[in-house]
Design a protein around this nucleic acid. Structure first.
Length: 568
RNA sequence: CGGGGUGUAGCUCAGCCAGGUAGAGUGCUUCGUUUGGGACGAAGAGGUCCCCGGUUCGAAUCCGGGCACCCCGACCA
């Protein structure tokens, strides 16, 4: 039971125009509706209205987490750097970690995520198989020194994340914990009216098994997603696999060096020799943790740097610059894995299966015909390191993959034992043997989810809040407040609303009707009630739904009933 | 970190090229009118022209350096 909030006293300023810095619809709405104010790049103040919205989102997520059996707790954001050294992530997170020093010169980090802290807690508390399985979660501010914060609440330097961690006896019971969380996420995005789809995701260098992201497909997203229109295959481009065109069939032939003047690219080469790009092999050079690496891949494909990074367990990986290419003695434009010495060679599986490929001769202006893996050259590792692209064949069916952009709203991930090992989360099983807990982690960015909700729920006039998330349930527009009949009707309405759980925002400002209606549309509460002499003369007050824009006159004594009808 | 753009009133922007009293719309304050879709009239308040330095009699404007913000890329367990 809450007293209605009067707008004349509410700390809120709406903007007629969006500030120039905002490009995305969600960013513009956040600023125009006065939900947030930027403090610095990637840092926002939430106003009372914005904070109400955040809390509604948080409450929805909390409800589903609790329903799944997870238990809420709270971990510190400020953590000793030693914890991060134990997990190895002091190095792997690198410059993304915000670092601070206390008065005694001890080093701390502002946590970007909480696997370390939760593992430390679990380590101290978990002793027996009877303690497991369990899933713990929190809402907590995360800090990441992002290279480029962007898009309002899309990518922040400080943000609120719901992060959950499961601890299991083994991989089998982890499957149950994971499934429960997956279902909770499905319900959350459903109820939040954001069409998020699960896609296969990269699990990074940590190892671990299944990893799925919940992606809201949206042209303003920053992740690239490959989707199969014919089946349900969907994967982040970092992870996506595909079936490459089969190699051209032929019998292995003798290697032969040919003159290829001015030919420096695969496109040139295939035109010059009149062959398909898939009949060539190309070399791509990388600098991996300060070591040169030669990547051999079929000419029609490109290297997926995430796959390569994971394969080599690399921290730093970047294309080699020209100076390093010279220093290493590689011949850009005619590079070949054949006869290379003093450099690690990594090959994509596409070149292992192919027969009689054309590759460089490691001499300018020359190439070699009929290269065959195993006979003429080998690599230290052969793996799938190819980048899936639109038009490639789906790994599961005959469909052609399509590419879309999307926003990562949530991530569920079977972590495995790496953190539990590093931080000693162990227990005794029934047989009295010491075992390491098997972990999962599950995150949802709350601020980003709020942004996605706005992206998915607005029209040209403003926000259209889903009922469960609206900062207020009802927006009351008062016209002609000096009229005694209006004042009396308003008093009665407010009293009745006060008897319910409904939260109301009452626009009692001394404004003309225009701005009041415009603001009501902009702020987007699900139901607008207009108390005015005109409506009263028609027998009640005007009831209007933001989503349908349909309105009707409802007698005062029926209003509460009318509002509650259709509450989801 | 590389490329591009922008910094002038709370917000949107003009003025800068061609140096000379700091502007408009909107918002805000006051008064009056108005009261169903950003209404009308009148009077006001509001400025470190991003910062530092230089050139000049004189700099929002020209020159040098820096900073911030936005976009693209790189990066992003």
């Amino acid at each position: 039971m809450t007293a209605p909030m009067r707008m004349s006293h509410f700390f809120l300023k709406t903007l007629r125009e969006a500030p120039a810095e905002a490009e995305l619809p969600s960013h513009q709405l956040l600023l125009r509706a006065g939900l947030v104010m930027p403090l610095a790049a990637g840092l926002y103040c939430f106003t009372p209205l914005g904070w109400r919205a955040m809390r509604r989102v948080e409450d929805l997520v909390r409800e589903e987490m609790d329903r799944s059996g997870a238990q809420e707790l709270r971990l510190p954001a400020l953590q000793p750097v030693e914890l991060w050294k134990r997990s190895g992530r002091n190095e792997t997170f690198g410059s993304v970690l915000f670092r601070v020093t206390d008065r005694r010169e001890r080093s701390f980090v502002l946590a970007p995520t909480h696997e370390e802290a939760i593992s430390a807690l679990a380590s101290s508390q978990v002793q027996s198989y009877r303690d497991l399985p369990m899933t713990l979660y929190q809402f907590q501010q995360k800090f990441r020194d992002e290279p480029r914060p962007r898009g309002g609440l899309i990518r922040l330097r400080e943000f609120c994340m719901k992060d959950a961690y499961s601890f299991d006896l083994d991989w089998e019971t982890l499957d149950d914990s994971y499934r429960a969380m997956f279902q909770a996420y499905t319900r959350i995005f459903d109820r939040a009216h954001v069409p998020a789809v699960p896609v296969e995701a990269d699990s990074g260098a940590i190892g671990g098994k299944d990893s799925q992201e919940f992606i809201y497909l949206n042209s303003n997203g920053e992740d690239e997603i490959l989707l199969c229109p014919s089946c349900d295959y969907a994967a982040n481009a970092e992870k996506a696999t595909f079936r490459a065109e089969p190699p051209v069939e032929s019998d292995p032939a003798e290697m032969k060096k040919v003159e290829t003047p001015e030919v420096r690219t695969i496109a040139n080469l295939s035109t010059f020799l009149g062959i398909e790009e898939r009949q060539t092999v190309k070399g791509v050079f990388y600098e991996v943790d300060s070591e040169p690496v030669f990547v051999a891949i079929r000419g029609d494909l490109e290297v997926n740097e995430t796959k390569l990074r994971n394969l080599l367990k690399a921290i730093e990986l970047e294309p080699m610059d020209d100076a390093a290419v010279l220093r290493t003695g590689l011949v850009a434009g005619s590079a070949s894995p054949v006869g290379l010495e003093g450099i690690r060679v990594v090959a994509d599986k596409s070149v292992k299966e192919a027969i009689n490929l054309v590759g460089g001769a490691n001499e300018p202006g020359k190439h070699i015909l009929n290269l065959n893996y195993g006979r003429d050259w080998t690599a230290s590792v052969v793996a799938d390191i190819a980048l899936a692209k639109a038009g490639h064949r789906c790994p599961n069916c005959e469909g052609q993959l399509e590419v879309r952009s999307g926003m990562e709203l949530g991530h569920v991930f079977k972590l495995g034992t790496s953190y539990a090992e590093a931080l000693d989360v162990q227990f005794l099983n029934k047989e009295g043997e010491r075992r390491t807990a098997v972990m999962g982690c599950y995150g949802i960015g709350i601020d980003r989810l709020l942004a996605a909700i706005l992206e998915a729920n607005h029209d040209e006039d403003g926000i259209v809040w889903p009922r469960v998330l609206a900062p207020f349930d009802v927006h009351v527009v008062v016209l002609g407040g000096d009229d005694p009949e209006v004042a009396q009707a308003l008093a009665q309405l407010e009293a009745e609303l006060g008897e319910t759980q409904l939260e109301a925002l009452v626009d009692d400002r001394d404004e003309s009707p225009g701005p009041k209606f415009k603001d009501a549309d902009l702020l987007g509460m699900p139901i607008r009630l207009t108390v005015s002499p005109r409506a009263l003369s028609q027998g009640g007050i005007e009831f209007r739904e933001r989503s349908s824009r349909e309105s009707e006159i409802v007698p005062l004594e029926k209003v509460i009933e009318r509002i509650q009808k259709g509450t989801d």
